[in-house]
């Protein structure tokens, strides 16, 4: 294990939010260490804090207590704009509702994070990214002109194209039918494996969770189970990936 670099360290992480009903403790002291290249699933009932944990890891929510270190960088002290730059450089996010920019073509959507980073070859890499998810023929289509599965593939290409160290996926198949969802998962795992990207995904699907290296179960804001999944047989892995 010492050969594998740590991708993520959470120490004593707590999150308390204000709501109309008063203060709500969402995360109640989470300690977690994730190695680079690991594929992690986070499972648990609704309201257990899965999405909140993702947001804290992605620098979208500031923890109330504890520390968050991602790719060697402690997020607690970073400003809003530093956090945005941190995401731009290190994190790709895949949403259940895709969240593509409706006024931009598929190509522009994928190029966007690299444009934000000021990379000159943003569009070439976006083209490659879309080709990798099988959408080379849909470059100039707007999200409204694409099916749900195609939109999620664009979102995948957008998340992976900048070569982030970490991919956060929140119910990536939640809005898709079974077959389309299966295609998306294969693509995601394939991309993560090819680039050695750490993958953390939130899911309600036990089958999907079982295909990850490790499953973390949350309940009432705490880690109640952290299980390493036995590596699938080569044939099965091939099928899954």
């Amino acid at each position: 294990m010492s050969l594998v670099q740590s991708a993520l360290e959470l120490n004593g992480l707590t999150l308390t939010l204000e709501s109309a009903a008063g203060r709500v403790n969402i995360l109640k002291g989470i300690d977690l260490s994730i190695q680079a290249g690991e594929r992690i699933s986070i499972v648990g009932p609704s309201g257990s804090g899965k999405s909140s944990l993702m947001m804290v890891i992605g620098g979208l929510e500031r923890p109330t207590g504890g520390t968050v270190t991602v790719a060697g960088q402690t997020l607690n002290s970073l400003s809003e704009d530093h956090l945005a730059r941190f995401r731009r450089d290190h994190v790709g996010i895949v949403f259940q509702s895709f969240h593509l920019m409706g006024a931009m073509t598929a190509l522009e959507n994928v190029a966007l994070p690299m444009e934000l980073a000021g990379e000159a070859d943003a569009f070439e890499r976006a083209r490659d990214g879309l080709a990798a998810v099988g959408l080379a023929h849909r470059l100039d289509h707007y999200p409204g002109q694409l099916s749900g599965g195609e939109q999620q593939r664009v979102a995948l290409a957008r998340a992976f194209a900048p070569r982030p160290r970490l991919i956060l996926a929140d119910e990536p198949t939640g809005n898709l039918d079974h077959d389309t969802g299966e295609q998306i998962i294969r693509l995601m795992f394939d991309q993560a494996r090819r680039h050695g990207t750490t993958l953390i995904l939130v899911t309600h699907d036990p089958g999907l969770a079982a295909r990850c290296d490790r499953t973390i179960r949350l309940a009432d804001g705490r880690v109640v189970e952290d299980t390493a999944v036995a590596r699938a047989a080569p044939g099965e892995q091939k099928g899954a990936d």
Binding site: G58, L60, E80, D81, A84, R85, F86, R87, R88, D89, I93, H99, L100, M101, G102, A103, L112, P113, L116, A117, R158
Partner: peptide, 16 residues
């Protein structure tokens, strides 16, 4: 709002 939040998620600073 969604476009703005998406841009932020993708790493756009508030100033941009």
């Amino acid at each position: 709002v969604h476009s703005i939040a998406t841009l932020k998620c993708l790493g756009s600073p508030a100033r941009l």
